[in-house]
Design a protein around this nucleic acid. Structure first.
Lengths: 340, 340
DNA sequence: GTGAAAGCGCTAACAT
DNA sequence: ATGTTAGCGCTTTCAC
């Protein structure tokens, strides 16, 4: 049986309380006894039971992370790293779940994490959180920070990048290059707030500059966005030609990669016969045969900032609940839109 | 304040015990009262405190997952998905940490997870787990399953793929294609057991078939294997020429991608001037300009099987501790070694 | 079928 | 500076 604090106390010939104080470096305690307790603990290989601790102090030092999708490039891995490195230094652990885009699973996870008394929650909500799910969140009074996406009609804290600006950046760049006919290629997550914002941003530019554009939206049930956009682009080849599109703007780098494959198979040379721009600046971009021009997001920082904000909220509960941290995307020019 | 079981009991005019029985669908209880309790619970929005439960029953229904690296392509994401989907159906939650290759962090995580009373642990150990870390694991008596990699000298359960075979598969294929001079390109994780096994497998073939080979091993401190192998390959261009290598065998798809970029910049056409084979069958492989031939691993299944094995161990503690589940890799032929 | 009481391992008021 | 006692929210004998 694992040794408990009482075992330590007995070995050190003190009371539980004193042992407890020694373990937690509390004030009023004799240096001598403190050492004795620590030694006893060590010799017994004592390890405090965090469950009991958490129960008692009503603080678990666990934070829940819910992603809606684990495939999406390195995007979530990087965000997770940001969260992990920030929080682990402060003695927190992370409990992770993936809703896989399902509202039911999302709700289950929220409830399950709540039941485990997480101190806070960082999540990318599914496109359409049900009012029910939102109510659960609000009732629970658990601090929540949304990341990357957020739920439209609900007061919340949020960390993300300026997707509207990102869309504009991409569109502007295409405009500068003289493109007038743009194919916008969507991924399976087209309804996501971050994606619709990108599109809105781009469209603002298109309209202002009187550029033509049309969207390519697959309908396959592909399991990842590369496959999805590959199929979509393949189906849209005629459309591309009849519209005389000279550039394709993809809503993510994965989408760009899938689309590029279809383009290549149809004889297009990326960066020469057609321009291609992605989004996210995934790891693979610089290494493609023709390195992908894209709009970069500070993924790691996104996670870090979300963690920082959440911990702040946890510390002073009263902090008002409507902070938005919006980081800036930036254009990363490589060769896929031609060289200049 | 959150309602407790006692609140529910009072509202339903029964004792805590009865309320507890009702919530847990236990036997000896009147159907009437059961319903009454359930209603009371619902009206109070009662949610059992899993911390208290776990403390009492000495089972947390949490399992710890420790990866050594979160960048490595989709490899770990897929594994995680496998674990997550298998365990979440059984009411488990996952607490995830990343050792980032550091033995200290790994040890910290193990201890931290232990303190949280995880029911079991799934981990990819760092290359060189210290005896200390191993001792901690053994003392704790927590069921552990290693995944992908394993620690050499220590009895354990393990789920992985047959990397020796994988290496052979790749080498054999190259041989069949008539290649006699192979450049083997290593990533930053060259000392990893899974990678050394791949190399050993390949070398067995090389020697048997009297093929020549040499290794390319970068020395940069790059943050990902694409960057790492890109730099390495760039530095090794002369070597490649003087050895008249006609094929490069990369220890992972990321490494292949980085290497391919260097090759392309030096005028090589992948699949024509030089053959390139990767490992893992990452998502991006089919979509590259010249789709990458590679050795595929069943990543999702790896996670699933590990979870399955761990839960089995948790259930019957006495099950002997030396199960090895070795899945088979398979060659995935695309175009990067030429077409036939 | 139901309840009283004890206790999981820890911490914190309150005494001394 | 140390100890006594109560209690976090739950489950589980054991008695009725």
């Amino acid at each position: 049986m694992k040794p408990t604090l009482l075992d330590v106390a007995e070995l050190a010939k003190v009371s539980r309380t004193t042992a407890c104080r020694a373990m937690n470096n509390e004030g009023r305690i004799d240096e001598e006894t403190r050492k004795r307790v620590l030694e006893a603990a060590k010799s017994l290989n004592y390890q405090p039971n965090r469950l009991a601790q958490s129960l008692r102090v009503k603080q678990s030092f666990v934070i829940g992370v819910i992603f809606s999708n684990l495939f999406a490039g390195h995007f979530y891995s990087e965000i997770f790293r940001g969260i992990e490195e920030y929080t682990s230094g402060q003695n927190y652990n992370l409990i992770l779940g993936c809703s896989d885009g399902s509202v039911e699973k999302e709700t289950e996870l929220i409830e399950s994490f709540q039941a485990r008394q997480v101190d806070g929650l960082i999540m990318t909500p599914t496109n359409h959180m049900t009012p029910e799910a939102i109510e659960i969140l609000e009732n629970s009074k658990i601090p929540v920070v949304f990341i990357d996406r957020c739920s439209a009609d609900y007061e919340h804290d949020y960390v993300g990048t300026d997707n509207l600006l990102g869309g504009k950046l991409a569109a502007d760049y295409l405009k500068q290059l003289g493109h007038r006919n743009i194919a916008v290629c969507m991924g399976a997550d087209a309804e996501t707030m971050s994606v619709t914002d990108r599109l809105r941003g781009a469209v603002q530019v298109f309209e202002k500059e009187q550029m033509h554009y049309f969207t390519i939206m697959g309908k396959s049930k592909a399991r990842n966005s590369k496959e999805f956009s590959y199929a979509a682009m393949l189906e849209s080849m005629d459309m591309l030609k009849s519209n005389e599109a000279t550039a394709v703007m993809a809503m993510s780098d994965s989408v760009a990669l899938g689309a590029s494959r279809a383009l290549i198979e149809h004889g297009y040379r990326i960066g020469k016969d057609i321009a291609l721009i992605g989004y996210n600046n995934d790891d693979f971009c610089p290494y493609l045969t023709v390195p992908l021009t894209t709009v970069g997001q500070p993924k790691y920082e996104l996670g870090e900032r979300a963690a920082e904000l959440l911990l702040k909220k946890i510390r002073d509960k009263k902090s008002k609940c409507n902070t938005k941290i919006i980081l800036k995307p930036k254009l990363v020019i490589r060769q896929s839109c031609g060289e200049f």
